[in-house]
């Protein structure tokens, strides 16, 4: 049997004005979450390579928990579970940002750890031999070099997190997928709409990729 299906361009283009309403949410959740995740990642990543095992232990536990459980479960837990604990509802947008922050934070911790550990020990020895303190040596010698190496994996994480926000349609945040679902409920043009949703994600991630490639080229030029 022939399906007789034809792609309806006017339906696809017609959906755009509605779909773009989701973009600010998608960007806000992903970049808001990533920004906090970056701070968490630096903190936890550095703790995870601390000499004291009492400081390493909580960092490792955090990383394993948030890397080892699905982000969908994490956001459901925050949105539906946590209110029982805190005694009040949690805004869906806040829950989404928190989930991205905690989840990307775990991965970024590993990126930070790997970046810092990849810097030769001789760099630290040279720094302290010059009379710089441990922390001066770290922040002016080790970190700038480590950060440069962290840019590609950080970009990778940003792209993963942007796509992860699509799962948050389940808690009703008005991001891209959710806008698509709402639109389809009245037009029944699932093929065209999800196709456009996919294109919009691709537009965001490709822009980011190009930006990163530019930053990388400039960053590596001066080493």
């Amino acid at each position: 049997m022939e399906s007789g299906f034809t792609f309806d361009w006017s339906a696809a283009v017609g959906a755009l004005p509605h779909l773009v309403k989701g973009i600010p949410y998608t960007l806000m959740i992903s970049f808001g979450g990533l920004l906090i995740g970056f701070v968490i990642g630096i903190f936890m990543g550095l703790l995870s390579i601390n000499k004291s095992r009492w400081l390493r232990w909580p960092a490792t536990a955090y990383i394993e928990i948030f890397r080892g459980t699905p982000i969908l479960v994490q956001v459901l837990f925050i949105f539906y579970g946590l209110p029982d604990l805190v005694g009040g509802p949690i805004n869906a947008l806040t829950a989404g940002i928190a989930a991205i922050a905690l989840n990307s934070g775990a991965y970024i911790s590993e990126v930070v750890r790997g970046g810092v550990q990849s810097i030769d020990k001789g760099q630290t020895e040279a720094g302290v031999s010059l009379g710089l303190s441990r922390s001066q040596t770290f922040w002016s010698v080790v970190w700038p070099q480590a950060f440069r190496r962290m840019i590609p994996p950080l970009g990778n994480q940003a792209i993963v997190s942007i796509k992860d926000t699509s799962l948050f349609s389940v808690i009703g945040v008005g991001e891209l997928v959710r806008q698509g679902q709402i639109y389809i409920a009245t037009t029944f043009t699932a093929f065209e709409v999800y196709f456009m949703v996919a294109l919009l994600y691709l537009a965001i991630t490709l822009t980011l990729s190009l930006l990163l490639r530019f930053v990388e080229r400039r960053g590596l030029a001066s080493t």
Binding site: Q123, E125, A126, G127, S129, T223
Partner: peptide, 16 residues
């Protein structure tokens, strides 16, 4: 360390 300078086999200059 402020009074003692050191030169290493691998130079250990700061590449950045």
């Amino acid at each position: 360390r402020k009074e003692v300078g050191m030169v290493f086999q691998q130079f250990n200059l700061f590449p950045h």
